[in-house]
Design a protein around this nucleic acid. Structure first.
Lengths: 199, 199, 199, 199
DNA sequence: CATGAATGAGCATTCATTCAT
DNA sequence: CATGAATGAATGCTCATTCAT
């Protein structure tokens, strides 16, 4: 009908995956269109055909990974009832997703600090519209309403939880043998203590 | 006689400062030697005269900021007695330093994920030898010995504290009006809860 | 299907020819990619598109000239029967080829002493695998077997014959009016005397 | 008094020697003033003080080596009586000098094809004013006058003898174990045959 | 739809030379 | 006499983008 065909979408997805691999392995600066095309087994021109430019390709990477993350975490989070449970599930699921999608997250970690808009200003839009961020803040506020959590600033706690997960990624990035399940357990205990009411 | 002259050191420092400004403002990728030289009011060749190459300039940035950070935080940390006090001082001092050296920290945040060695592997060496990291882990272990802190994995807690500070920097980077003093207060409470024994 | 297309090869040949002209006229050091591209009527980037780098372009020059030389000299040499005849034909044909391909040989004369490998050591590999060298030594050994030639060291004689031709090129390089046919005649007499048995 | 002082001359000689070493070892293109100065243990500026520029330094190298060569070969040649003897002595002495001054000759071999005047034309002036060249041609003509030598073109023979010596240098350059004395013996026999009358 | 070819701006680096001290 | 500092032009190269086929 209208819009991109199924084939077209599959082709785009293929380039997104190749780009993710190259960025994860060789870094943002080294990820030229030539290398990405080579990994995909085609020539540079093809990428320009499917994407308006390198910017759109990068944008698509972010979008795809965000979508994928939300689809992975969303249902698991919905199954939890209390805020404490949700916090637990969120941390465990985040690190579980990380374990299953190493390249994707390594790539995002390279892309975020390097994306700039036309004016040269850093682009934070996507970072803060990302699914995780919103889900965390919501569950924190809910826990505060039910009295499970103490009276902290939800924005700070949200950023800190998100940063804690990024910290795990950083560690895992250069210590691939890191036990992410155990790491998740430590984070759960840490943030349950950090959020619990004074009693 | 011995080593570089005072003038030479001052000149290097000047280029380091210009490079920090350009990287903080325009990002790692856009920080060409030409732009850095332009900011310093000279030509590219002069940088090559004072540094063996761009790599050495970047290295010097990291070194200078680390040294500066250590000199700022070290004495304040030494003045604290209990582990809890030290943790408090560490977090407050870190964000205070951040407030006073915005460009430096924004620059480091750009440099770290983008530095690669000759093999294309990311360079983490400095990041983990950095003063903050070591100081945190030490005070955590001390708190566990004295019974002030509960029995968590010091490595995970260290990474999380460091990441929490990085998270503050990220927020502040695109919300320059953020109240870092209040933010520090929130982090202190957060991590005191996170580290405190169960009793 | 397999390998470079005909068009690609023709384009490479075109740049090789331009490079030969620039090197022959302006010397090795002055033969920058910019000048070579300008002579070809394009920009530097195009050369980088067709060759992996300046090194490969220089390599191709050597290869092309060697191939051309072999195709010129080979059949003429094969038509000769006795070793003396072959020596005669070799010298005459070499200077005849020189006369017809001035730029090529002037370029090679610039390239050889200036080519270095990555370690900074001079590259002799090609020079001694070159067609002329092998052909000479073979015919000299044949003449010694048949008794036409006396008992000299074939390696020294080979180098000397090759150097004699290089000497002719040197003379001709700055005296373009030099009569190369007469010169060839002198060289033939010279080396027939030099190689002839004592009797 | 007038002209350069003794100290001045010694200083120039020192830089000439360093330049010879660097050029011989690393090649013409890699022999920057910085490297030459580093080898001399001083800074680039000093060379500019003693020489009007890199050109004058290169000129001085050529001049010094030519002078040295002439002083070495001249007396030995004068001691020979017949033309044949002189030819023998010339070849033997040339290779003997080569053996004793490897760096000097390797340097000259790099300098000659790379020297250009302001117009970009190659400089042959020195090459053909060099002592060896003149000495050879003179002895060849003498041999023809006395009937020792046959009736060849002295110019061609001169160039060929000179080129034969250059060929020996080329061989020796990449085969440092080459027996130059034996090589000289071969050349002597070769050119005695080449020059001898028909009888 | 796809691509080989070309483009030109930008990059880090090297270098001979100049100059104030 | 000597030199550390600075200069700016030039070099090889990479890259995102464009375009004709």
């Amino acid at each position: 009908m209208s819009g991109p065909t199924f084939t077209e979408l599959a082709r785009r997805r293929q380039f997104v995956d190749c780009a993710i691999d190259v960025i994860a392995e060789q870094g943002f600066a080294a990820a030229s269109l030539a290398k990405i095309a080579a990994r995909a087994g085609t020539s540079k021109g093809v990428i320009s055909y499917h994407f308006s430019g390198k910017d759109e390709l990068l944008e698509q990477i972010v979008l795809d990974v965000f979508t994928d993350t939300a689809e992975f975490i969303g249902p698991r989070l919905a199954a939890a009832t209390t805020a404490t449970e949700k916090l637990t599930v969120f941390l465990e699921t985040s690190l579980e997703y990380m374990r299953l999608h190493r390249a994707q997250l390594l790539a995002l970690r390279q892309i975020f600090p390097n994306r700039r808009d036309a004016n040269g200003d850093q682009r934070y839009d996507n970072e803060h519209g990302e699914p995780r961020e919103r889900a965390i803040e919501e569950l924190l506020r809910e826990g505060q309403r039910t009295g499970e959590f103490r009276d902290f600033d939800p924005a700070v706690m949200t950023v800190t939880i998100r940063s804690a997960i990024d910290g795990a990624l950083n560690q895992w990035a250069h210590s691939p043998d890191l036990d992410l399940t155990a790491y998740a357990g430590e984070l759960v205990t840490l943030f349950i203590h950090a959020t619990r009411g004074e009693s």
